[in-house]
Design a protein around this nucleic acid. Structure first.
Lengths: 151, 151
DNA sequence: ATAATAAAGGTCAGAAAAGGTCAAAGGAGG
DNA sequence: CCTCCTTTGACCTTTTCTGACCTTTATTAT
C-alpha cells in the first residue's frame, strides 16, 4: 500500500473513535517520513467535500488542520446528490458522490459499484468528449431516481 | 508454445493456488523478457470476462493489475449474460436479459431496476439513434461486470 | 506600538512510477 | 500468397510524491 493510503487509513481510523479530529501537518508528515505537502495531497484526494468531509485549517503559530465527517439521513443525501449532479459531471466526481452515499447508508456497496460502472470512462468510451459529461449526468440522475423509488 | 501461452500458463497456475492474484505489469514483462504491452495482449485474449475472469488495474505509483477467476454459480451466469450482449442491444432485449437474471437469482430486483434505469430511453435521450445500441451494450456489460465483481 | 522573527499551513509545477492504447511489423499455417 | 494471431514500440493518461516558494498568525525584541 502506498504512502497516501497509509496516511488516509490512519486518519480514517482516528475519525472512527472521534467524530472530529485535529492534527498538525508537520507532525503527521514527520510520523510518516514524508513531505508536509504530501498531507495536503492526501486530504484533497481522500477527504474532499464530495466524499463527505469538511477540512478546516489555520496557519501560523499554533496552526492546525481539522477534519470532520458530515452525515445526513439517507433520503436527504439522495436528494442532495440528485441536486448536486447538475447538467454535467465527470467520472471522478460521480464516484466521490457514490462513496459518500454508500458511507451514509443511502445506497448499498453493490449499488454503488453498479452505478460507478455504468458511468465509468470505460462504459462511455466512444462518446465524444464534449457530450460525455452531460450523458453521464443524465444516466446518474435516472439511476438515483430508481434508487429513491426503491427505498 | 508462444510467449502469450507461456504467460497465460504462468497466470493460470498462480490462480490455482490463490483465487485472486495481483501483479506488476512491468515485473511480469521483465520476467518473460517482453514488452509490457504484451501483458495487456495476454490479458485481453486469455483472461476476458467472457472467459470467466475479472481484471482490474490501477495506474500511477503503486499501480497493479488484479486478476480473479469467477467460479460457477450466479456470478458465472452473469458472465455468460455479458458474453451474450454483443456489441449492440436495444432496450427491450436488455430488459429481457435482466428479467432472466432476476428470475435466476443472479441479481436482485433493485439491481435490475437500477440497470434498466441506466439504459432507459430517458437516460440515453440525446444520443444519436445509430450509436445508442452500442452505447447501451457497453454500459450493460460494464454493469454486469460490476455485479459479478461484488461478493 | 512596531518591527522583526519564528512557526505554522498552502500552492503549484514537475519528476517519477505505474499501467493503457494503437498501429504497424513479424510469423506460422493453410 | 493470404490471413490470422502475436509482438513490439512509440506515445498517452493517471496517480503519487517532493521541493521551492508563498501566506498567515503568533511571539519577541526594540
Amino acid at each position: 500500500m502506498g504512502l497516501t493510503d497509509l496516511v488516509a487509513q490512519f486518519i480514517r481510523s482516528a475519525l472512527e473513535s472521534d467524530q472530529s479530529l485535529e492534527l498538525r501537518r508537520g507532525e503527521l508528515a514527520e510520523r510518516f517520513g514524508c513531505a508536509p505537502s504530501q498531507i495536503n495531497y492526501v486530504l484533497s484526494t481522500r477527504f474532499s467535500p464530495e466524499q463527505g468531509y469538511i477540512v478546516e485549517s489555520r496557519r501560523g503559530g499554533g496552526g492546525y488542520i481539522r477534519i470532520r465527517r458530515v452525515e445526513a439521513g439517507p433520503r436527504l443525501m439522495l436528494m442532495h446528490a440528485l441536486a448536486s449532479v447538475g447538467s454535467s459531471i465527470d467520472a471522478a466526481s460521480a464516484a466521490a458522490v457514490l462513496t459518500n452515499l454508500d458511507a451514509a447508508g443511502a445506497i448499498t456497496p453493490a449499488e454503488g459499484r453498479l452505478m460507478a460502472a455504468a458511468m465509468s470512462e470505460r462504459a462511455l468510451a466512444g462518446v465524444p468528449a464534449e457530450r460525455k459529461g452531460a450523458l453521464r449526468a443524465e444516466i446518474f440522475k435516472q439511476m438515483l431516481l430508481a434508487c429513491a423509488d426503491a427505498g
